[in-house]
Design a protein around this nucleic acid. Structure first.
Lengths: 203, 203
DNA sequence: GACGGTGCCTAACGGTGTTCGGCGCGTACC
DNA sequence: GGTACGCGCCGAACACCGTTAGGCACCGTC
């Protein structure tokens, strides 16, 4: 992410829209889509430990072994969930920057919102190396494009902002900040550093 | 972390040293210490999936069920590993700031080194909420103190730097940056923003 | 009407964390 | 010196996990 394209890339909004149009679940049968959807609800409602093939089968009304008729294995199921997550991020982020006075602030707010609304999916999307061989192609890059666009194509800055945002989000989700911490302020100050008045050091 | 103490705390170096002296493993029997040590090697050598009670027993030469004579359960084992990790961080960080021209830069370098040298332990320490009821008391705070000290007691700044550092580290460990990314540069630029010349915007 | 594929089933394998009952051995005490 | 105790181990078992193999019923197509 933030480096898959050469530094000189110029991203037009049309390209972003087009990548969003590539629906992840289109490559799946209706039954597989249903399974992925139920899996997502189960994951978010009861946590990662509850997302077992047997529990998932129970939710649908079939045996665990029958799931393998529709999805190769659990890795493929998780990859589908992650692909859906990236797709929704891409759409969310593209919408967030539309007409935003401070695109980077708008993007990081949307990033935090996404993670807080579906913490278990967000963890799934970030806590391990990605299986690019199982993900829907291009979906990760599509989620990253709005931020790269907001930094004017500066991969360096985009990566730094992403690292800060992910660090803030995942430490918050894992309750690693004390309850007394004013995270809104920490976010604002941090983002101001990255995206704030860049002309401050100009004469 | 970065908030367990009131903002006005003044940390003397002697206090840091003293907290380091509290050895985590002292509360364990010799056999339990051995198990934790073997578990650490197994975790780091073969990854989190290999850290099972049976595999661990094999390494020691006993049955999995015998481990429960020495450690309450797997949560307690993991908590011991995490406690050891924090303890080593505390010592490493305290050493890193000694005589450093730029303490924050020295600290974040040590932070990254720690994570890269024992990625699986670092993941274990950060990827879930901490079981404070199982951790050695004070060990998390001890690891956080040097950074809080380096920011002059500014919890806000300490949290932001921590979030950036953790984000950079965990995304690097999980291979989420492209191979072409120059992470050294990203680190330097990011840390400069947080800790760099604060007199840049002075006349 | 037979054929083939689809989608489910049961059963099983090897793995996981954990508990229970038993057993041998060394130490402490009478 | 004999006895009691408890520590540290063991085997067996339970409930769960991901996954595979083989069978069976249905349904559309030739």
């Amino acid at each position: 992410m933030f480096g898959a394209y050469p530094n000189t890339v110029r991203v037009r909004k049309e390209e972003v829209i087009q990548m969003q149009a590539t629906r992840v679940l289109d490559g799946l049968t209706p039954r597989a889509r249903e399974i992925v959807q139920v899996a997502r609800e189960l994951l978010e409602r009861e946590g990662p430990a509850a997302l077992s093939m047997r529990r998932l089968g129970d939710q649908i009304g079939i045996r665990a072994s029958s799931i393998y008729e529709h999805l190769r294995d659990k890795d493929a199921l998780e990859a589908a969930l992650i692909s859906v997550g990236f797709e929704e991020q891409a759409e969310l982020f593209a919408r967030a920057v539309q007409g935003a006075a401070n695109p980077i602030l708008a993007l990081t707010s949307a990033y935090r919102d996404f993670a807080r609304r579906q913490p278990n999916l967000y963890r799934l999307m970030t806590e391990r190396a990605l299986r690019h061989d199982l993900l829907a192609p291009g979906v990760e890059e599509a989620a990253a494009l709005p931020l790269l666009h907001a930094t004017g194509g500066d991969h360096e800055q985009a990566r730094a902002i992403w690292a800060f945002a992910h660090g803030m989000v995942i430490l918050e989700l894992n309750h690693r900040f004390p309850g007394s911490a004013d995270l809104d302020t920490t976010w604002r100050k941090g983002i101001d550093l990255f995206a704030g008045q860049p002309d401050a050091d100009q004469p």
